[in-house]
Design a binder for these strands. Sequence first.
DNA 1: TTGACATAACACCAAATGGTGTCATATATT
DNA 2: AATATATGACACCATTTGGTGTTATGTCAA
Lengths: 104, 104
Amino acid sequence: MGAVKHDVFQAIADPTRRAMLQLLANKNLPISEITAHFPISRTAIVKHLHILSEAQLVQGTKVGREKIYQLHPEPLVEVKDWLSFYEQFWSNKLALLKYQMEKD
Amino acid sequence: MGAVKHDVFQAIADPTRRAMLQLLANKNLPISEITAHFPISRTAIVKHLHILSEAQLVQGTKVGREKIYQLHPEPLVEVKDWLSFYEQFWSNKLALLKYQMEKD
DNA sequence: TTGACATAACACCAAATGGTGTCATATATT
DNA sequence: AATATATGACACCATTTGGTGTTATGTCAA
């Protein structure tokens, strides 16, 4: 899919890709087995895996004729860090109210 | 942009939209002032605001001839909750190692 | 060695994305 | 009343996305 490098935020934007991460959280799996869990074609699965790879969220290793994919959750830290800025707003209803009133 | 309802994950996938949220975190702003902060056209900004609105991340209120946009960070909790599942993996290097070895 | 299996590599397609510009309308301002 | 400002509503466009199917190649197993 193009020369564009996908980042973590784009990678997790698609529900199918999030489901794929969930699946790989339990077990490392080859493409064929991943495909068996979804109603879409193997080709489509491979494209999603490619996007997840670009975002460094999964890593594939060829073993014999299979390519085993493994979850690599570290890049999600970037999302967590981004979110932490907004936690101040929802973590405390009073803080939220204060913020709403003061900011303009 | 179509009849599709955007969710939070799609909404935050775009860097411009994330920057818009950041901007609105400081102050409620009308469309014209939001536009002044970005190198793209007002039309493009309005489309991004529409996507953020669908995801309930911002809310616009018409005041006179202006439409003031306000941050509405609550839906980000969904992202936080989703992320919490993966925290087990990176929060602890030992747990990660254990997980890598045991899962297959 | 002959299939069967797993993946790679294409070509193709409809729809969504992210952007542009123009024109109309409503509201301030002078 | 005339003008400037702010937004709404379109029409348009190139590229990306998410999917399809087909064909080729490498590998395991009987």
